[in-house]
């Protein structure tokens, strides 16, 4: 057989997708991943970026359709794609993100001006992480409705993500969640990595999330 000791130089295999800044957004079902993306897109557009969105719905195209409706008149619906994951949401963004990479490549083929791709994972558990090949930056979204014990439960999503967002701070009093406890525990288990408290529907904390993403864009691609 032919045996090759060294892999091909990476330049032979790089594609447009490798050169685009990719942001992964993961977290439990209903924590506000879709709302976060819907609020972030207009901010990123105002800051001069060209955006594409890929959602990983579990069973329907509900998230993709919701993003299209909410961003009607803001973002061309053709720049939003839904990808089915065969009931394996974590596999689709971590172990084998082939279909997400293929969807990203197709979006870039149609819209060569895109400089930022937002990947929303299907709702999953606290162990969800993104493959570094799929996302340059990985944002994990919790919400106060899940209970203020959540940051203490840890899991790689909470402890290892580049940014932890604690969403729905507006409903904290109604679900008996202590925001101070959540923020303190999150800081402790993340050993100082950033945590931002948000209300995605009213926009609280969203500029800070956008600032974080912008700062990481510079770190990931100095020429940007």
């Amino acid at each position: 057989m032919h045996q090759h000791a060294h892999p091909a130089p990476a330049t032979h295999l790089t594609t447009a997708l490798d050169r685009v800044f990719k942001v992964g957004v993961g977290g439990p079902v209903g924590s506000g991943k879709t709302a976060l993306i819907e609020a972030l897109v207009p901010i990123l557009l105002r800051r001069g970026h060209s955006v594409g969105v890929i959602t990983n719905d579990i069973y329907t195209q509900e998230d993709a359709d919701h993003v299209r409706r909410t961003l009607d008149g803001v973002l061309d619906p053709a720049r939003i794609m839904g990808v089915e994951t065969g009931s394996c949401p974590h596999t689709a963004v971590r172990d084998d993100p082939s279909m997400n990479l293929a969807a990203g490549a197709e979006l870039l083929e149609r819209f060569g001006d895109i400089d930022t791709l937002l990947y929303e994972s299907g709702g999953d558990n606290l162990t969800l992480t993104f493959s570094p090949l799929l996302a340059d930056v990985y944002v994990f979204v919790l919400d106060t409705g899940e209970g203020d014990k959540m940051p203490r439960k840890r899991g790689p999503g909470i402890t290892d993500s580049d940014l932890l967002v604690i969403n729905k701070i507006d409903i904290a009093p109604y679900v008996r969640a202590d925001l101070d406890v959540m923020a303190r525990d999150a800081d402790r288990v993340r050993e100082g990595r950033p945590v931002i408290l948000t209300d995605a529907l009213r926009g609280t904390g969203l500029p800070e999330v956008a600032d974080f993403i912008t700062s990481r864009r510079r770190a990931c691609s100095p020429s940007a």
Partner: peptide, 17 residues
């Protein structure tokens, strides 16, 4: 989609001409 993704991974891993 599956073909092109397998191709990129296989070309990286096995690197045959």
């Amino acid at each position: 989609r599956t073909g092109n993704q397998v191709l990129r991974t296989a070309a990286t891993v096995f690197a045959t001409p």
